[in-house]
Amino acid sequence: MSAGTQLDRPKAAFDPASPPTGTEETCGHPDGVRATARIRATYNGRVTTLPELRSDGPFHLRRMRTGGRAATVGVIGAMSAPLGGDRLALDITAEDRAELDVTTAAATLALRGPTTAPATYDVRLSVGEHACLRWLPKPLISAADSNLHQTCTVNLAATSQLVLREEQILGRANEKPGHLVSRIRVHRAGRLLLDQHTAYGDPEPGWDGPAVLDGHRAVGQLLVVDPELDLQRAPVLLRKGTKDGCAVLAPLAGGPALLATAVARTSSALRELLNEALGHAFGE
């Protein structure tokens, strides 16, 4: 996960000329890392426990100390990932009545790696009845020449609570971003609540134009799902212009959910917008 490599990756010959092939789309690059880490939280009647905490590949999972009934897990980068050709997945389940917080220790840096083939990074979140999951990872940085297909698939029960934040930083300082394709799909009580697909960086057409990002390099979302939410209110607009970033927080159509969408020049400005949106979501 983090930029700091702690474990050796499988040895791979670096060959920038090797073109991606069709089979890599589905099977991953032979040099790529395949890893699926799992977190499963349950409620034992008193506190939330973690019967499954399976680290894998770049995902090193660590139980954090907490008070109260919630459990907290930190995802710590055990090697540089995702690189081109990697197939990474993170399954997080909060079973009925469990309360789980998951964070990442450092930003996730998508790099080119030994191949230009896309890496995939699939996050699957599942939240049971009366359970609560807060998935608040650090930003994903799409570095120059990287190629990442990211998905976030969320399944919620009717009484689930969710706070989800996604931040994407397009390029490190003064570099062109890589190619970053993301899709988020959220189902609640079997019904589709949100389905969004974004694609940034070359060769996507129009991604940096005035209809999509208009030069902003930090883009993010905050999704709050909570059956107790007060949805009978006007959308909140943060910052009136667009030049220095702006955001909207508004209810979704299909359930008790608020979504903030923000664009900004920098990751810190983006976080500020999303934090403000979070405050508004919880009625401040």
Binding site: R183, R185, D195, Q196, H197, T198, A199, P210, A211, V212, L213, D214, H216, V219, L237, T242, C246, A247, V248, T261, A262, V263
Partner: peptide, 9 residues
């Protein structure tokens, strides 16, 4: 489901 953050905001 292609979307644009700026068109939404």
């Amino acid at each position: 489901s292609a979307s644009s953050p700026l068109l939404d905001i």
